[in-house]
Design a protein around this nucleic acid. Structure first.
Length: 906
RNA sequence: GGGCGAGUAGCUCAGGUGGUCAGAGCGCACGGCUCACAUCCGUGAGGUCGGGGGUUCGAGUCCCUCCUCGCCCACCA
């Protein structure tokens, strides 16, 4: 028998099939949809990974989930588009290239802007293809013909268009405002790019500011002499963690209702070191319980102080240079680094007797998200988006249900962030990114903002204009992604057909960074929501639940996992091991489990394929010729199709995957295939054809259901079916039709269930009594009115429970009970096993005692329940169910008691 | 200071709208090279569903409270 299965190795080897299959999919153009205006498309804009990045588990997760949705919808026949791309990741990429330069002893300034950008582009060329190649290894069925990069001319045009439009609407403006400044990167950052990590030990400095009056009109001696504050009678003490910012103080504030300081409000303090006269004022922003209740006000270097200063008309003084050394406004400390200046100033304060005390204090300074440098709040001239009006719209569309966020609980976060949104600083003092399209006129000072590079000032016509040196926040550019990838601002067919996109699938960690901003920009630019559904997945952690990081050395490299277990195994693990919005722990043991599942499927298919040469009957539940197991597996299969489809529609990918797993392994492999061997090996030609038909039909269906999870192995196996000529006409599984739920047969399911339970009970008894596996068991089955069922499946019982066909008695009556037989009740059926010689009386006594005790307890519980209020208050059906249960329990108890007696047990 | 999530068998986790929901995989124990598969097959043991209180005829499943862990946001200088 030269069977086809012999062509397949015994063990599934992912390495051999994955890459060729992917190449075939891509070359055949299956990833590119055909626009069909009569059908609604399914569209995902892929969150673009950093162009120079390396694949990590986060990517593996999003590829798995998005590809899952994409493949499902493609199989459903929807025109399905998944647009891939990469992000230039301004600051991240620039920092990487700067690090490379640093190894050569160079800085970007030494290189100059143009040369530096050349280096970045070279870097991009070198590493840019890595990530997209890696996405392919995972099986991402995205449309590479539409691949985009955020620095492409097309996307750049979109960025400029968006900037100009917002500028024209007055929503983008340039202003001097307090921003977060990273001294290492030399750029402004948005609030989101500042992270407050662990609290650390810091110090809280209590500093006395002398007050003018009481005969003291200011310092007579120079700063540092030790007599600077000589003669001062009154002081106000403030507490600060950043003493050096004192040099920028323009006021001292207390709470308006703070009785301790009421008398001081309105007086004038003298700023240490600089001698500046600053007012003592009252402002409700002051926390009376912190420090002394009096706070130095530094509008140039602190956000709250900025607001206090604004309310009271205080001057704003910047005391720092971009590199965080102090500037000329810092008097004697000018030129010092901020932390050196702190030491020096504190020492001087002490000398002058103005340092009251220093306390340990835990605090968490803001740090640059990219380089971890402590960020300095600083006054700076930057470009901003007035996000408030945009945010209001973004809130509205979610409230109105035009966008659904899954899991829903993230809506709360989304609303809260948008409701409290502040002006978004979008200019970055970087070189890698989209240059701000604003030109300053040297002659009239006018700012020209234009879609095309202007050659002259829009107001005075002067050709002496210079473009703004800065670039835009990367997130400004990526906020346009869902429509820029479709050709916006042009009115392209893609945009008309595929926009708004359907699902935005991404990690919850960039809900604010990206998702919220896409909604704002989408609405502002296109007047429509950019997507209908936001699906947020959790973070992938290591087996201990810790965040994977290179420094911790606990990263699990997806490519290594793919090499060792296959992409399908990794995907299945990620898809079934996670619930929306919750983090998951990835362990290689689980991946191995998925790999085993793939192997199981492989071998099930080998078996089916080995039976294929020969006539095939397409099965139908209408066909009276089907056997009970046939009807059972078809019915179960149809239920599975319905349940899986429902779960997928509800974005319940884990549940759907588990359903397929269970059906495949338990129902199909462990039961149906085992049962099928009988008709296949010993049946008639008709039996074989019928059984083959069922096997092929169900396997084909399993492959379809599983394809979104395990695209490679399913495509490979389906290819064998296809070549055997037993599939529908689809060219590949990737474009084959999603199965439709068929009819079910509850009666067949119930009968089969009974047989299965009887077989399990018999096997259980064998194990309990250590019957050698070679020994065939004698059994008497009292099956009541199920006699025809059992008669018809005699051989099935014999083979699966390893019974002795000569000594298997089937009968209706429960009595008489055979001598020296064990009794096992299974529903209405009673199993008698004459195991007299084999039974260990002690063991049997123990078993019976345990079971009886258990039964008694359950009977008592149920009886109590049925005599309680439950009987009158609960729905009749529920009560009835309990009644039946009680009857069953009692019957079983009586049998066991009888057996107890008969065995002469005490 | 707010907000959110998690705490269910040894481990990792599932468990719409309260009534076979007490489950799966791994691990463990025992028995099997049964002609698709030892990346396997068969059988089994293991849980007062974090603690306490409440609502209800009935609660992992709803409410309150507490504990432990994790995350997000926030202007305590």
């Amino acid at each position: 028998m030269a069977s086809r299965a012999m062509e397949l190795p015994k063990t599934f080897n992912p390495q051999e099939i994955e890459e060729p299959i992917y190449r075939w999919w891509e070359e055949r153009g299956f990833f590119t949809p055909r626009i069909d205006w009569s059908r609604k498309p399914f569209v995902i804009a892929m969150p673009p990974p950093n162009v120079t990045g390396e694949l990590h588990m986060g990517h593996a997760m999003f590829v798995t989930l998005e590809d899952l949705m994409i493949r499902y919808h493609r199989m459903r026949g929807d025109p399905t588009l998944w647009v891939p791309g990469t992000d230039h990741a301004g600051i991240a990429t620039q920092v990487m290239v700067e690090r490379e330069l640093a190894r050569e002893g160079l800085t970007r300034q030494q290189l100059g802007r143009e040369k530096f950008l050349e280096r970045v582009w070279a870097w991009k060329e070198k590493y840019g293809g890595t990530i997209t190649r890696q996405l392919r290894r995972l099986g991402a069925s995205c449309d590479w013909t539409r691949e985009r990069f955020t620095m492409d001319p097309e996307h750049s045009r979109a960025v400029r268009e968006a900037f100009v439009r917002l500028y024209e609407r007055g929503l983008i403006y340039r202003a001097e405002y307090l921003i977060n400044w990273c001294p290492r990167c030399g750029t402004a950052l948005s609030d989101l790019e500042v992270e407050r990590e662990e609290e650390e030990e810091g110090l809280l400095y209590y500093i006395r500011y002398p007050l003018v009056g009481d005969g003291w009109e200011g310092p007579a001696a120079p700063w540092g002499s030790g007599r600077w504050a000589e003669g001062a009678r009154a002081f106000i003490t403030v507490a600060t963690t950043r003493p050096e910012t004192l040099l920028g103080d323009t006021g001292v504030a207390v709470h308006p209702e703070d009785a301790r300081y009421a008398a001081l409000v309105g007086r004038t303090a003298v700023l240490p070191a600089l001698g500046r006269r600053i007012p003592v004022l009252a402002d409700p922003a002051v926390d009376r319980d912190f420090g002394t209740g009096a706070v130095k006000v530094t509008p140039g270097h602190d956000p709250i102080d900025y607001e206090i200063g604004e309310r009271h008309g205080l001057p704003r003084i910047n005391v720092m240079n971009p590199d965080a050394t102090l500037n000329e406004n810092a008097g004697p400390y000018a030129g010092m680094d901020r932390f050196r200046a702190r030491e020096a100033l504190v020492a001087d304060l002490e000398r002058e007797g103005l340092l009251e005390r220093v306390e340990p204090h835990r605090y968490a300074p803001g740090r640059c998200q990219r380089c971890d440098t402590i960020v300095e709040p600083m006054l700076s001239l930057q470009w901003f988006v007035n996000a408030k009006p945009l945010a209001e719209e973004a809130i509205r569309v979610v409230k109105e249900g035009k966008i659904r966020i899954l899991p829903e609980r993230f809506e709360k976060d989304y609303f809260r962030w948008l409701e409290n949104i502040r002006p978004w600083c979008i200019s970055r003092q970087l070189w890698w990114g989209h240059r701000i399209p604003a030109w300053y006129c040297d002659d009239c000072g006018h700012i020209t903002v234009a879609r095309e590079d202007p050659t002259a000032c829009a107001r005075c016509g002067s050709p002496r204009i210079r473009q703004d040196e800065d670039v835009l926040d990367t997130w400004f550019s990526s906020a346009l992604w869902p429509f820029s990838i479709l050709g916006w601002p042009d009115d392209t067919e893609d945009l008309r057909y595929f926009y708004p996109t359907t699902v935005m699938e991404t990690g919850y960690d960039i809900l604010f960074f990206w998702v919220a901003r896409m909604v704002m920009m989408g609405l502002a630019m296109t007047g429509e929501v950019p997507f209908r559904i936001v699906y947020l997945h959790g973070l992938v952690r290591d087996e201990k639940g810790e965040k994977m990081s290179k420094t911790k050395g606990n990263v699990i490299d997806p490519l290594v996992v793919i090499r060792d277990y296959g992409a399908d195994a990794l995907r299945f693990t990620l898809a079934t091991g996670s619930t929306p919005g919750n983090d998951m722990r990835l362990s290689l043991q689980r991946v191995a489990g998925s790999r085993n599942f793939a192997n199981k499927l492989w071998n099930a298919a080998r078996f089916v394929l080995s039976q294929i040469p020969g006539p095939i009957a397409r099965p139908s539940l209408e066909d009276p010729g089907l056997t009970l197991p046939d009807r059972w597996i078809l019915s179960r299969y149809h239920r599975t199709v319905a349940a899986v489809t429902e779960a997928l529609e509800g974005f319940d990918f884990g549940e759907a995957g588990r359903l397929i797993y269970e059906f495949t392994w338990d129902a199909f492999c462990d039961w149906y295939i085992e049962i099928a061997k009988e008709p296949l090996y010993r049946g008639s030609e008709a039996d074989r054809a019928r059984t083959r038909g069922v096997l092929v039909y169900v396997l084909d269906g399993i492959l379809r259901l599983l394809h979104p999870y395990m695209p490679f192995i399913t495509e490979a196996l389906w290819g064998y079916l296809r070549r055997a000529g037993v599939t529908d006409g689809a060219e590949g599984l990737i474009v084959a039709a999603w199965p439709t739920p068929g009819p079910v047969d509850p009666a067949a399911e119930a009968d089969m269930q009974l047989l299965i339970e009887v077989i399990r009970t018999l096997r259980n008894a064998r194990e309990t009594y250590r019957v050698p596996s070679a020994q065939r068991l004698a059994a008497v089955l009292a099956v009541g009115d199920k006699r025809p069922l059992f008669e018809a499946h005699r051989s099935l019982l014999v083979s699966l429970a390893r019974l002795d066909p000569e000594r298997l008695v089937l009968r209706e009556a429960a009595e008489p009970v055979p001598e020296n037989a064990l009794i096992y009740p299974v529903g209405e059926v009673r199993i008698y096993l004459p195991l007299a010689g084999l039974v260990d009386l002690e063991a049997e006594r123990a078993r019976l005692a345990r079971e009886l005790a258990d039964l008694e307890a359950r009977i008592a519980r149920t009886e109590r329940l049925l005599t309680s209020e439950f009987a009158v208050r609960a729905p009749a059906s529920v009560v009835e169910k309990e009644r039946r249960k009680l009857e069953e329990l009692k019957a079983r108890r009586d049998q066991l008691r009888a057996e107890w007696e008969r065995l002469g047990l005490r």
